[in-house]
Design a protein around this nucleic acid. Structure first.
Length: 796
RNA sequence: GGGAGCUUAGCUCAGUUGGUAGAGCAUCUGCCUUACAAGCAGAGGGUCACAGGUUCGAGUCCUGUAGCUCCCACCA
């Protein structure tokens, strides 16, 4: 018997523990049919919020759906605790500066932070009723993961896909590390265009040049003009003299120059922007470093040495003004590349870095984008677009403390790269030494590579890291391509892209077949929920579970459209809560009539056939939506059926169930069979969205009947193909009932009010066969049928 | 500048292959009905962004326009 009230707060926890103890969600690698998900490990960088719950719950709905199709579902859970986000979190919360403590101490701090955060993260997901295995989880910083990640490095190095190059790379002066193209944001910043003049050697002429980066004047290596620039044609081949520094630089004609921009003459520095870097390579120009890794000017800048870039810019402008070299200024706003993590304008600096070759593989990457199935489909374009615009190889060196080290030393004598032995992985080259002498020069002194790898170099291996929990084989492709990678739309060019790249480079195949793109959880005002910013006022996940239940929280998130952002509104939690109550109450009505009842096949009354037809129709639509990962639309279909069941079917069945002495035992049994079947079927469909209450009711009423330990490992109730005939006729009955209810409503009568006589005209045979049901549900003394136009005539 | 998506009821959104506009929320009216008042019944509410075109017929297909959102490019 179900209690009058469903006490979700205690029952939800009860079932969570039950599922865990009984290993309901355990993956069976031997299963005939498997469904494997490459779960995104949440980044451990602070407080977890409802946005996470939104996307992970959608994923859980998918996992549960696949499980109820009879597949064994691999739904791992992991923690992404490797790298910059965690590092920044630790720095911020402990108010530490990187240069004030040792690397070892800092790493300890990071591990401590992870230990504190892990249980919080686990709790939030576990209490949402997620069907992942929380007892065996992975993390992106464990020794085992480090081993896999380093092995990936060695493998790609040996394949010739990784190399160390000394070239321009994207540098964040705030984080003091190189970053990748994918980590760039663009910010619209105010700036000033400064018009200055260069001298010309052996000439009185001055050459006008515009620049937004006068602080790089000391690193000016060349001046370009357009080949068709007649006014300046005579200068090509001559030597320009930079102001203040009096450096002699060549004047070269270059078709890349945009004659409309600035003055039409460009100074090329090391490096003002990507064009500078390109030209440096193209003309083999000298590399002059005016900016140091800490974002301050070097000795090259002369009197401006030690100033930060922005300060130096102000100072040099002042100086240029004083000396009369600056002849004009115009304010402008322009887009500046910034580091997405900290918003600092990035610089291009030269430093030896490790690169994974991507530009050589653009075609394969593009093809991989075509080969994956994207949901929603148009997200594929974003991937292809990104591959198209790829300009940099993937720089994987990071000048940070906390991360996975490169398994690499350099020979102090000859500089040769010495790789760690695979059997020694994971290694920390700063703590150990190579086992043999340098193969090239026989040297025995080595210095370690002190950089660590980009976090994405590791998280791009999640298919290998998570399936390693099954195979213990590390970098292995036994289970790839997996079935599904879920991912937010902002991660298409990052996590998705790199995972595809690694899988292609290592194994020559896709990491997974399907990609589902989910939106962001947005606050009611439409701002993105973020771990680092607080969107004050919004509920936290655990508060929401407490106030509205986990099931209601899940309802909110699963009701979203594929790929679309979802807004947090308490309205939706309330709706979820109401649905839960309704499910409870409907079951509380039906189930007592099913005590001691065992279903057997009998001939069903027309309206019973009708609701079963409705169920079949819903079931088909539900399945086809879920096939496309459209869980929100599937849920809508289901809800429609459920309300129909409550408002129309139960009202009809009620009379037969209560009064078999009036309507007959057969009519009662027909209603019993039908409500048993349809409620059981609907519960299963609901169970992927609201697993707790579905389990509660299932255990009370159906678990024994199905001899199944949990609704979540039972199979959907497929009643066969919907043929389409019975539903429309039954709907007509509902319309007639609705008309009669409307009549009472308009007259201000109670619905139980007795009607003396009702005549239904133009009704088909099906409706006539339902005479008892209609009479009962509308409380009609005398119900008659007549020929003529379809109508309902009521006499009080 | 290149690409993608969106525009349907006051709000949030559905609308599969063209065939009389749908749901939830909100609003209004009525109803304590032996599951549920956190409920039930009923009602009002839309030139489907705009303009053309194809068609017997267009929210749906084609072309164009406008507005919003996102991705990419744009640092002289």
């Amino acid at each position: 018997m179900l209690e009058k009230r469903y006490d979700f707060s205690s029952r939800e926890e009860h079932w969570q523990e039950y599922w865990r103890e009984n290993e309901i969600y355990k993956f069976n690698p031997e299963a005939e049919e498997r469904y494997m998900i490459d779960t995104p490990p949440p980044t451990m960088s602070g407080n977890i919020h409802l946005g996470h719950i939104a996307s992970y719950t959608q994923l859980d709905v998918i996992a549960r759906h696949q499980r109820m199709l009879g597949k064994s579902v691999f739904f791992p859970f992991g923690y992404d605790n490797n790298g910059l986000p965690t590092e920044r979190y630790v720095q911020k919360n402990s108010k530490l500066k990187m240069n004030e403590i040792t690397r070892g101490q800092f790493i300890e701090k990071c591990y401590d932070a992870i230990d504190e955060l892990k249980p919080i993260y686990r709790e939030v997901f576990f209490r949402a009723g997620h069907s992942a295995d929380f007892d065996e989880t992975y993390s992106t910083i464990t020794p085992r993961t480090q081993e896999i990640s380093q092995r990936s490095f060695l493998d790609l190095y040996k394949k010739g896909e990784i190399e160390r190059r000394n070239s321009a790379s994207l540098w964040c002066p705030e984080c003091r590390t190189t970053i990748a193209q994918s980590e760039i944001d663009t910010a619209e910043l105010d700036s000033v265009m400064n018009y200055i003049t260069f001298g010309i050697k052996d000439s009185e002429e001055r050459l006008k040049i515009a620049t937004t980066r006068p602080e790089l004047l000391s690193a000016c290596v060349c001046v370009f003009v357009h080949p068709e620039d007649e006014a300046r044609a005579h200068l090509v081949g001559k030597t320009a003299i930079s102001p203040l520094y009096n450096a002699e630089v060549p004047i070269i004609a270059n078709p890349d120059v945009d004659r409309e921009k600035g003055t039409g003459a460009v100074m090329c520095c090391t490096f003002g922007d990507e064009a500078d870097a390109k030209w440096q390579k193209e003309y083999n120009l000298p590399i002059l470093e005016a900016i140091a890794y800490n974002g301050k000017m070097t000795a090259l800048a002369g009197e401006f040495e030690g100033l930060k870039v922005i300060e130096a810019r102000k100072a040099i402008i002042e100086k240029l003004r004083e000396t009369g070299i600056l002849y004009d200024q115009t304010p402008l706003t322009h887009p500046v590349a910034t580091h997405e993590r900290c918003g600092t304008a990035i610089e291009l600096l030269t430093k030896p870095q490790w690169f994974i070759k991507l530009l050589d593989h653009k075609d394969e990457l593009y093809q991989a984008g075509l080969d994956c199935k994207w949901y929603p489909e148009h997200m594929q374009k974003r991937f292809l677009n990104w591959v198209d615009g790829l300009k940099w190889d993937w720089c994987i060196s990071r000048q940070r403390f906390y991360g996975i080290p490169f398994p690499v030393w350099y020979c102090e004598d000859c500089g040769e790269v010495i790789l760690a032995d695979e059997s020694d992985l994971p290694v920390d080259p700063s703590a150990t030494q190579p086992k043999c002498a340098c193969p090239k020069c026989g040297g025995t002194k080595f210095k370690p590579e002190n950089d660590v790898m980009d976090t994405w170099a590791t998280s791009s291996l999640t298919p290998q890291i998570c399936t390693d929990m099954l195979t213990k084989k590390g970098l292995d492709d036994t289970y790839t391509p997996m079935n599904l990678r879920p991912c937010a739309h902002d991660n298409i060019r990052v996590w998705n892209f790199y995972t595809i790249a690694k899988s292609l480079l290592h194994f020559g195949k896709l990491p997974w077949k399907d990609v589902v793109i989910h939106g962001w959880g947005l606050s009611a005002t439409g701002t993105k929920l973020s771990k680092s910013k607080s969107n004050g006022g919004t509920l936290g996940p655990v508060d929401t579970y407490k106030k509205y239940s986990a099931d209601a929280t899940r309802y909110w998130t699963s009701n979203a459209s594929l790929g679309k952002d979802i807004y947090i509104t308490e309205e939706e939690f309330k709706n979820g809560f109401k649905l839960m109550q309704k499910l409870w109450n409907a079951s509380r009505f039906v189930l007592p009539f099913l005590e001691g009842y065992t279903p057997r096949e009998i001939e069903l009354l027309p309206m019973d056939c009708w609701i079963i037809g409705c169920y079949k129709q819903t079931f088909e639509r539900f399945m086809s939506y879920m096939e496309k990962y459209e869980m929100g639309l599937a849920l809508n279909e289901l809800e429609q059926l459920f309300w129909n069941f409550c408002d129309n079917y139960i009202e009809i069945a009620k009379n037969r169930l209560y009064k078999p002495e009036v309507y007959g035992e057969h009519a009662k049994e027909s209603a019993q069979y039908t409500s048993h079947t349809v409620l059981r079927g609907m519960l299963k469909l609901f169970s992927i969205y609201m697993p707790h209450i579905a389990e509660e009711i299932y255990q009370d009423a159906f678990a024994e009947f199905e001899a199944c330990k949990s609704i979540h490992i039972s199979k959907y109730l497929d009643l066969g193909k919907y043929t389409g005939n019975d539903v429309s006729a039954g709907n007509e009955v509902c319309e007639i009932v609705s008309k009669i209810r409307g009549y009472k409503s308009q007259k201000g009568l109670s619905l139980k009010e007795e009607l003396k006589k009702v005549t239904i005209t133009g009704a088909p045979q099906f409706v006539k066969d339902c005479v008892d049901d209609i009479r009962a549900v509308c409380n009609i003394v005398n119900l008659e049928f007549a020929d003529g136009e379809k109508d309902v005539i009521i006499e009080e």
